Amino acid sequence: MLGMRERPEGLIDDDLRRGLAAGWGVHGKLTYLPVGAGGYHWAVGGRWFVTVDTRGDAAGLERALSTATALRLPFVIAPVPAEDGTTVRALSPRHLLSVYPMVEGVAGDFGPHPPEQRDRVLDLLIALHRATPAVASTAPRTALRLPGRAGLEEALNGLARPWTSGPYGEAAHRVLAEHAERVRGWLAEFDDLARAARDPAGWVVTHGEPHPGNFLRTAEGLRLIDWDTVLLAPAERDLWMLTGAMFGSGPGDDAELLGRYERETGRRVSPELIGFYRLWWMLADIAIYADELRRPHTANEDRAASLTYLAGYF
Rank of each mutant, 00 (worst) to 15 (best):
A287D: 10
D226S: 07
A82C: 08
D291C: 03
P167D: 12
E181N: 09
E301L: 05
A299G: 07
D253S: 15
L193W: 03
G3T: 15
D302S: 02
L232G: 14
Y309N: 10
P251I: 09
A299R: 12
A90W: 08
P133R: 06
W280Q: 15
E209Y: 00
N157C: 13
P79A: 14
W163D: 02
D57K: 04
E272M: 11
E262I: 04
W24R: 04
L152K: 13
I126E: 13
Q117D: 15
E178T: 06
G169S: 11
L71I: 05
F110S: 14
L216V: 08
A134F: 00
G39H: 08
R295Q: 13
P112C: 13
A194P: 03
L156V: 09
F110M: 12
G312I: 02
R118E: 14
A196D: 14
A194D: 05
G105I: 10
W42S: 01
P79H: 10
D123H: 12
V205T: 12
M4D: 00
A196Q: 07
V135A: 05
G208K: 08
M102W: 09
T86A: 15
D285K: 08
A155W: 04
A136T: 04
F49E: 10
V204K: 08
T206L: 04
R182G: 06
G111L: 09
L224T: 01
E104R: 14
G46I: 02
G36E: 05
A37I: 00
Y32M: 01
R55C: 02
D109Y: 11
P79Q: 13
R63V: 00
A78V: 02
R130A: 13
M1N: 07
A64F: 00
S165N: 14
G46R: 09
G46Y: 03
A143I: 04
M1K: 07
P210L: 02
L20R: 06
A134G: 01
E220T: 13
L152G: 09
V50G: 07
H211E: 06
L156T: 11
D119V: 11
A127M: 10
D53H: 14
T54Y: 00
P74Q: 12
L293V: 06
F215Y: 10
A70S: 12
P296H: 06
A287N: 10
Y289L: 08
R195W: 05
R5W: 06
I286S: 11
A43Q: 04
R89Y: 04
D191M: 01
P112I: 11
L61V: 00
Y289H: 14
A82L: 09
A290C: 15
G25R: 10
P74I: 10
G85N: 14
R198P: 00
A287K: 12
A197R: 05
G166S: 10
P251A: 13
A311Y: 03
L159N: 12
A78K: 08
D253T: 11
L279N: 12
